[in-house]
Amino acid sequence: MSVVTPAEVRAVAWLARIDVPEDRLPQVAAQLDDILAYVRKLQAIPTQSVEPTSHVLPLSNVTRADQPVPPLPAEQAVRLAPDQRGHLVRVPKVVDVG
C-alpha cells in the first residue's frame, strides 16, 4: 500500500527547498514509501500514557552570563560567503516577500 504520493513529495521538496524534477517524483515517492512503510510499524506500539523523550539527559537550566565577547571581524564573517560585496553577504534578489 502506498502512502506517499508524488504530490506529497513535491510539497515536501518545496518545504525543504530541494528541486526534485517532475519526472523523478514518482520514483522518490516510491523510495520514501518503502522506508515509511517500514517505519510505520512503530504506530502499532501503545504509547498513550508515555511521555516523549527529546532529551535523554536530565539536564536543565543551562545558561551563560550576559557577557559580550568580541565578535568575528566583519571581513572574516563575510569572506566565508560564496558572494559578497563590501561587508554584506550578497544573494540573488528576494522576489517573494517573506
Binding site: R64, P68, P71, L72, A74, A77, L88, V89
Partner: peptide, 17 residues
C-alpha cells in the same frame, strides 16, 4: 551567543560562528 547588541554597528560586525 556572546555577540554584542549595540545598535547601529557597521554591517556584519557583530556576528560570530
Amino acid at each position: 551567543c556572546g555577540c554584542p547588541t549595540t545598535f547601529g554597528a557597521a554591517p556584519n560586525s557583530q556576528t560570530c560562528p
